[in-house]
Write a protein that binds this DNA or RNA. Structure first.
Length: 802
DNA sequence: AGCACGCCGACT
DNA sequence: GTCGGCGTGCTC
């Protein structure tokens, strides 16, 4: 028997199955979808079994044996194997990269090189002896750190040592030690009587155990209940009155308990939407819905009730949310409805926690998963519904390989499982709304807020007029007045700082120099915490300069409106106000996000100040004022989606106010109040915005009128980069039909990254079946000719940033 | 991708 | 003479 294995080497020439002989002893164990350890050339690597056959075309002298099977139960099921193949083709990635998406990172391989000693250590140079110590094996890394690499090479030549590639496997199952009390009471009595009468404590403990025969306790609990020390417990266990057992436990990612809730009364609109979804659930049909509901219209309740039906039918549900920002409040809602059946999956969990949640899903112990993008790959086998909340969010698109979009994967899986997909949003992406209008998706609309609250009143303040009247602060008089009245009424305020594409940089006020990364064409970001400058792309760091690097002026200082600066201003205006600041600095620690939100929910602060991360999901009854400090920072980005993103942001933020009994008010400060994105967001008019934006997109030939693909060339030398980019553009123009528009080559928006220059072509196309095959051919050509010349090529279909 | 193999310059 | 530079080619 032979196994077809995709090896854990992400490279073009090995991106295909390799055949290995399955040794007799493993034939009954090995299944398709399991991980195996195999020899590959001179090293050992991990691989995934993607097929098992009786024959092989590979000459027998070349076929090698599988060395080890790592999973008795396959980690990737048939559906996900198929999905990986689809992803490989659609996103143009290596199959191994697609397969890695399907398993938690705890199960991914780690490799280590170990040096083995074969002679008496006295024969070695002293330096090597110290690293080995008394052991005969040590990681190569330790020799590297000691600077002993040349000595190792020498020892290697002499045959004194060998180097072995070890595949390390994480995925530790957490266990806890429990005390299992002997179940035979007679036996306990016998033990009790055998203990000398002087050992009072021991006799006391055994007597207690007689009352709890056959039960299991944590050691600490026994000690606490009986008020007897651990030492005594140990001696009693030694006498055989109880045994230690290891129990597999799950790491618990939930930090607090929840109260059970039941279904809420639905409005007529909600009922209608739910009914439409339920019809497809009953019919077991793959179908995509776009649930367009204004903020506060109760989309989540529809999700919950649809999932309830799915669970009643014994099926599973996948609920995707954009990012951690949403998960605490959202998961809480799901847990309070479905209790222990819910698993969570997001980047805030540790590797171990993610692994445990994944195992619960794999074993069928949970039926609902609430998670971020990657949760779309959970190994459920009977999916009944897939929901993407805030479907317009760009976080659903992965920015590095495999560059997949969770929405596309959701649709694929829904077809596999014959189940509906629900895309929910208050501000759907133009792509989705256009598809709904064309009838590809079914549009479900919620136009009223669930509790009949009126939408908040939105005031747009013209900052130009404000400036003309002499107010140079970042707060307009309207906003200050509104804040003052809320503070007086002890209501809560949310202040939103729109900083998209904008960060704190360091600028010389004499010559205008902005300190840039030496590897990338990007300004360095100022970090107040350790007073340094950091490149967000390559991680390069340097100290804050005292002098301008180009003109030596000392007038060099930190610039940009950070949240800290706003906080200082608030303190000047309202010294008594309690401010909670939420940004990368205050939320970097695990769980801090949740803590801050909890604190705000408990009214421990009057003002919540933050960036994008507070735009979504916040739902507190006492928020009656939302202030947007500068609406237009996201409006003037070189991105065709700038207006759409601004509209979405303003609508989302406004939706935070007045969700409960008290009416809400929103103050939007801007330098361009006449811009349609701002005017229409003020009116909360999605459809008019959609119509307006669509005419713009049609005129400029942008999505959704065209699909786009981005092909990028990078090289260490500018001239070479331009040359190959031009060659690529010519090649594409020659091989793609006339109807496909190829723009460029042009320099990428970040023209240099990690010392590589970047040029790109933008491909615009309508439905074009030849595109993917042509791109595959381009890559094949590049691999054959350019790769060795130091050229790098990347392809991103449907990029979210261009 | 990694690693071995293999063929040419500068060092003990 | 050997060490080590990195071009070339293979991995079941």
């Amino acid at each position: 028997m032979f196994a077809q294995v995709i090896v854990d080497v992400a490279a073009y020439p090995v991106d295909r199955p390799f055949d290995y002989r399955i040794p007799e002893s493993l034939q009954t164990v090995l299944e398709v979808g399991s991980r195996v350890k195999v020899p590959f050339g001179p090293r050992n690597v991990l691989g995934f079994v993607v097929g098992i056959r009786a024959e092989t075309d590979v000459p027998t002298n070349k076929v090698r044996n599988i060395s080890e099977v790592l999973d008795v139960e396959p980690v990737i099921n048939a559906e996900l194997l198929q999905l990986a193949k689809w992803l490989k083709h659609e996103t143009i990635c290596f199959e191994i990269d697609a397969l890695q998406l399907m398993i938690p990172s705890a199960l991914r391989a780690k490799y280590e090189k170990r040096v083995h000693l074969h002679v008496a250590s006295e024969q070695l140079p002293p330096m090597l002896q110290t690293v080995f110590g008394t052991k005969t094996t040590a990681p190569l890394q330790q020799f590297e750190k000691a600077g002993a690499l040349p000595l190792i090479k020498q020892a290697l030549r002499l045959g004194h040592v060998t180097i072995e590639n070890v595949v390390k496997q994480q995925g530790k199952v957490k266990t806890e030690r429990y005390v299992f009390i002997e179940s035979d009471v007679e036996k306990l009595v016998a033990i009790h009587d055998s203990v000398s009468k002087q050992a009072k404590k021991q006799r006391e403990l055994i007597a207690w155990m007689q009352q709890h025969a056959g039960q299991m306790y944590k050691p600490a609990d026994i000690c606490e209940v009986t008020n007897i020390g651990v030492a005594v417990l140990h001696s009693v266990i030694e006498r055989g009155a109880a045994t230690f057992v290891s129990q597999e436990v799950y790491r618990d990612p939930f930090t607090k308990d929840v109260h059970k809730t039941t279904n809420l009364q639905l409005t007529d609109e909600q009922d209608l939407a739910l009914l439409a979804i339920q019809k497809k659930l009953d019919a077991q049909q793959a179908h995509t819905f776009l649930l367009h509901g204004i903020t506060g219209s109760g989309k989540t309740e529809i999700y919950l009730q649809a999932i309830e039906q799915v669970l009643a039918e014994g099926k599973e549900a996948i609920m995707l949310v954009p990012e951690i920002a949403l998960t605490p409040q959202m998961t809480e809602r799901f847990r309070s409805r479905f209790g222990e059946q819910v698993a969570v999956m997001h980047s805030g969990l540790s590797t171990g926690e993610k692994y445990d949640e994944w195992r619960k899903i794999q074993k069928g112990e949970v039926k609902v998963v609430v998670g971020a993008r990657s949760a779309i790959f959970v190994p459920f086998t009977n999916v009944g519904i897939i929901i993407l909340d805030e479907e317009h969010e760009s976080t659903y698109k992965q920015e590095d390989v495999p560059r997949y979009h969770a929405r596309d994967v959701a649709v694929w899986r829904s077809q596999y499982h014959n189940c509906p997909v629900v895309l929910g949003s208050a501000t759907p992406s133009l792509e989705s709304f256009a598809r709904a209008k064309k009838g590809v998706y079914t549009l479900l609309t919620l136009s009223e807020r669930a509790k009949q609250q009126s939408l908040p009143t939105v005031h747009v303040v013209d900052l130009r007029a404000e400036l003309a009247s002499g107010n140079r602060s970042m707060f307009s008089t309207v906003l200050v007045d509104a804040m003052r009245s809320r503070l007086a009424r002890r209501e809560q305020i949310v202040l939103f700082l729109n900083r998209r594409g904008y960060s704190s940089f360091v600028l010389c006020r004499d010559c205008g120099t902005v300190v840039q990364c030496k590897n990338c064409d990007i300004s360095l970001t100022y970090h107040r915490t350790n007073e340094n400058l950091k490149c967000h792309y390559c991680g390069y760091e340097e100290m804050l300069p005292q002098q301008c690097p180009s003109c030596q002026s000392e007038h060099i200082r930190y610039f940009g409106t950070g949240t800290q600066k706003v906080e200082e201003e608030i303190h000047k205006l309202f010294p008594e106000a309690r401010v909670l600041r939420m940004d990368v600095d205050t939320t970097s620690k695990k769980g801090s996000h949740e803590q801050l939100l909890d604190a705000f929910g408990n009214k421990e602060a009057d003002i919540l100040l933050g960036t994008q991360m507070i735009a979504k999901g916040l739902d507190f009854p006492d928020i009656t004022l939302v202030g947007v400090l500068s609406a237009d920072t996201s409006l003037h980005l070189p991105d065709y989606r700038a207006a759409e993103k601004t509209f979405q942001l303003l609508t989302q933020v406004s939706g935070r106010a007045g969700r409960h009994d008290k009416p809400g008010e929103v103050v939007v400060q801007t330098y361009t109040p006449e811009h349609y994105a701002i005017e229409l967001a003020k009116a909360q008019a999605y459809v008019p915005f959609y119509e307006h934006e669509m005419t713009q997109r049609r005129r400029s030939g942008h999505p959704p009128y065209y699909y786009i693909a981005l092909v990028q060339i990078s090289h260490e030398d500018v001239m070479q980069t331009i040359r190959y980019a031009q060659e690529m553009a010519d090649w594409l123009r020659m091989h793609l039909p006339q109807s496909v528009r190829i723009l460029g080559p042009t320099a990428s928006s970040i023209a240099r990254l990690q010392n590589r220059y970047r040029y790109q072509c933008l491909i615009k196309y309508k439905i074009e079946p030849t595109l993917i095959p042509t791109l595959h051919a381009l890559i094949a050509m590049y691999r054959a000719e350019w790769a060795k010349l130091g050229v790098q090529l990347t392809v991103d279909l449907d990029p979210s940033m261009i």
